[in-house]
Computed example of a mutant assay.
Amino acid sequence: MASGLRRGWDPLAAVTALIVLIMMGLYVGFVAQQDGQVLAWFLGALALAALLAIYSAVRTALWRGLALTVSGVILTVVGILGILSIGLPILVAGVLALVGAARSQHDRL
C-alpha cells in the first residue's frame, strides 16, 4: 500500500503551488488597485517557487527534495519580507514546502 503512495502526487507540494499561484494573482490585483508598480523580483521569486513546487508535486521527480527545499526557503524569505501585507499565506506555503521536503527524504528510504 505504501508503494502506491510513493508513485502519485504529493499533496503538500501541490497545495504549496496552489497557494503561491493564488497569492501571485492577489498581489498583482492589490498593486493594480493601488495604482502601484509590481516588484519584478518579488513576483519572479514567487514564480520560481511555484514552478519548483509544481515540479516537486510528482513523487517520482528527480531532485524532488532539493526542489521543494529551495521553494520552501524562497517562500519563507519572501513571506517574512511581505509579512505586513500578503506574507502570511506565503510563509505558510514555505513551511508546507519544507515539511514536504523533509517527507520526501523519508519516502526515499
Rank of each mutant, 00 (worst) to 15 (best):
S71N: 05
A17N: 10
V95R: 05
G94N: 02
L18E: 09
V38M: 11
A49K: 05
L62H: 09
L62T: 09
V77W: 08
L51P: 04
A13Y: 10
L84A: 14
A61D: 04
M23D: 12
R64Y: 04
V38W: 07
F30G: 15
R103K: 13
A67N: 03
G79L: 03
L26E: 11
W9L: 13
A67I: 00
W63D: 07
A40S: 15
R103Y: 12
P11T: 08
L39K: 15
L48G: 04
L52T: 03
V20R: 02
A47H: 01
L66E: 08
V58N: 12
L88S: 12
G8C: 09
R108L: 14
S85T: 15
L62D: 11
S71K: 05
V95D: 03
L62I: 10
P11H: 07
A61C: 03
Y27G: 08
L51W: 03
P11S: 08
V73A: 07
W41N: 15
A47T: 06
T16M: 06
I54C: 03
M1Y: 06
G94R: 01
L43H: 00
G44K: 08
V77K: 05
Y55H: 06
I22D: 12
F42W: 13
A93C: 02
V99M: 13
D10G: 08
